[in-house]
Design a protein around this nucleic acid. Structure first.
Lengths: 229, 229
DNA sequence: CGTGCGCTTGACTTTTTTCAATAAAGGTGG
DNA sequence: CCACCTTTATTGAAAAAAGTCAAGCGCACG
């Protein structure tokens, strides 16, 4: 069945038997989500969690004045909204589709029953949450200990690692959302990109394409060993 | 045995049978840690994780210039250093005793074997990591979306909830470390406490004692509905 | 073809940090 | 128990970083 193939592509479910995947499929429902739709809200009661079959979902917090901090952008194969399955009853942030998406939903109680009978499922889940904690520790470090140019530099290096030509990269978000991911605002991001261009560290090709001209300087920026003039 | 009593007081191990506690005890070692001792460092390879029997441990990141961001302060009954047990091989931050402490150590592979045979242990672990993710989401929100007065106000309210007299509270850290927990520096914290005092929101008694004089205004500060004059 | 949203840039304000000096607190050994 | 010494805390003045407000451009989409 198609659903089982989708489940098997989720890393969290790696190493599970076909029987177990079938059991999971039996409790799974799939939902199409249009771009811009809020899947759940901060503080909302949770009945289960999600995984992405297609599309991308941003997880974010909002300030009272409406400023947004993106915590995570998840793509195909990644799960989200698991926290209230295991502690607390409410989602800790907002989730919104930033592309037309197809998400799979797993109801809480039924999923917990499966965990009790299948330790590998628990270990996959633990690995998943652990990776996320590691990612958050890094995000906190960036927000608290680096200035915006350093955060941007680190992000550019991160993106450049996962492209064919390691010196030409495509931004995965528009600049407003990239600003939100980096804990700043579009104006500041724009200015810093301009400064990095003027100092010959990067070159802006398309609106979404960046060429790295001076990788070493960008690495120094990301490590706090240098600052923009 | 004394070790089993200590294990039974760790919330992560709630609901486990005596036999299982005995099995855990068989792989546990206890270690005294003097105040100021670094238990593990960011990036160091991990062989297992820890839980606190007595004392307090801070988990933190350092910038190249030596600025510190505290991620967590853990006390008796709390576990730390679990992330590399389930994903990655290295600790994601530093851990240091801020009081003379007694910590329990659980070796990685042996602990994973126990998890495979006891689903309740996995669920306790999952609840633990989930709580931590929730806490981190909150910390990120504070760092990114609130100014320092708002972060301090939120922390004072948090402390006041867990004291007998809800309007008189004891800071759990010295001010240098409190600044580090709030993502700022001692000078800034000092100034903001002075401003809150001048505006009649709080009164500083001892160096560690704070009396809340105007709780409503502090709540508004914490919610970003108000700012200091 | 127009409206709107995203992006950029400038001028200005606010917040926070830096640097420096001093004061207070806490722990140690005599 | 006190004097000393190190660490911690406070305060001021100046600098830096980032945010706000406002205006204008351009591209996309209906």
């Amino acid at each position: 069945m198609d659903l089982i193939r989708k489940l098997s592509q989720i890393p969290m479910f790696d190493g599970l038997s076909n029987e177990m995947l079938t059991e999971i499929a039996a409790i799974t429902t799939a939902h199409e989500v249009p771009k811009g739709k809020v899947i759940f809200s901060d503080g909302e009661e949770a009945n289960g969690f999600y995984a992405i079959a297609e599309g991308r979902i941003k997880i974010y917090k909002l300030s009272p004045e409406g400023k947004e901090q993106i915590l995570h952008v998840f793509g195909p194969g990644e799960a989200f909204g698991e926290v209230p399955v295991f502690s607390g009853r409410h989602f800790p942030a907002y989730a919104e589709a930033i592309e037309p998406s197809l998400v799979l939903f797993f109801p809480k109680e039924k999923f917990i029953s499966l965990i009790k009978s299948e330790p590998m499922l628990a270990l996959g889940m633990l690995a998943d949450l652990s990776r996320r904690l590691r990612y958050f520790a890094n995000l906190i470090e960036n927000l608290s200990l680096k200035e915006v140019p350093g955060r941007l530099a680190a992000h550019l290096l991160y993106l450049s690692e996962r492209q064919e030509d390691s010196n030409e990269l495509t931004l995965d978000l528009n600049k407003t959302q990239l600003a939100s991911l980096l804990g700043t605002i579009p104006e500041t991001l724009s200015r810093i990109l301009a400064r990095m261009t003027k100092e010959g560290l990067i070159e802006l090709l398309d609106n979404r394409q960046v060429r790295i001209l001076d990788r070493e300087s960008i690495e120094e920026l990301a490590n706090g060993e240098r600052r923009l003039g």
